[in-house]
Amino acid sequence: MTKQSNSLSQGTTPPIFPVKTKIQVTVIFFVVIGVYLFSMFWTQQQMVGGFGNAIGNMVVVIEKFFPPNLSILPAIWDPMAQTIQMAIIATTVAAVLTVPLALLSAQNITTFKPLYYFTRTLLNILRTIPDLVLAVVFVGLFGIGLFPGIIALIIFSLGILAKLISETIEAVDMNPLEAMRASGGNILQVIFYGLVPQVLPQFTSFVLYVFEINIRASVVLGLVGAGGIGLVLDQQLGFYNYPNAMAIIVLIFVVVLVIEYISNKLREALI
């Protein structure tokens, strides 16, 4: 303590960041740069012919995709709708299940520490599993189709939603909750009156956001057998029917854009 004030009074300006932090950040920076350089070098070596050849190959393949065979659009509309339904169902179920999980993993609401740590850990573990892995596991368990896809998406979105919403809950103004507790309200009443109005706009916004993610994810999940448009795309690619595949890609592109646009507009209106 005295030492510090001494060095200040001698007129030396202290650094904005502690020296230790500075060294740490510098080391981390160089390690990251090193990893980048190494992986660039390594990928080059692994690719036969390097980047140049890969780009040439790409052009050849891309040419095969054109023109897209748009005449199949009526036929692929059904699986596309399935994909959207998959995302809707999964998002809805996840939104409902998120509520108790988010409350239990919010430190200001769940004051019983062991329970809080338990749900926190559970959610952290959930979030480490990639959606594709979930889909592969559930397709293995339930067979090819929409059901395993929906289950995978529910678990995947639960991980994200519960985390985002529990953090929103933790940032809430606790004063009105105290007032309601002081007037004799029970825990459910306190939550519904004091907490819900404060988190509802954020909640809706996050659900819409996760819905957007789920639309895209459900396409990808289809590729590993979880039904919907992704499955059809996978089949067409398997038959080397590139014009059909391209038509599917165009459809997905348009649908995702439209849904994101709508959802963005809704979210803007909310906040």
């Binding site: 009105p176 007032a179 007037s183 004799g184 029970n186 109005p197």
Partner: peptide, 22 residues
Amino acid sequence: FQNYNLVKRSNVLKNVLAGRLG
């Protein structure tokens, strides 16, 4: 309370009705 402790996003009537919760 010093800081009134109202639910800021709720309307006045709903805040006052919260007095009946118990």
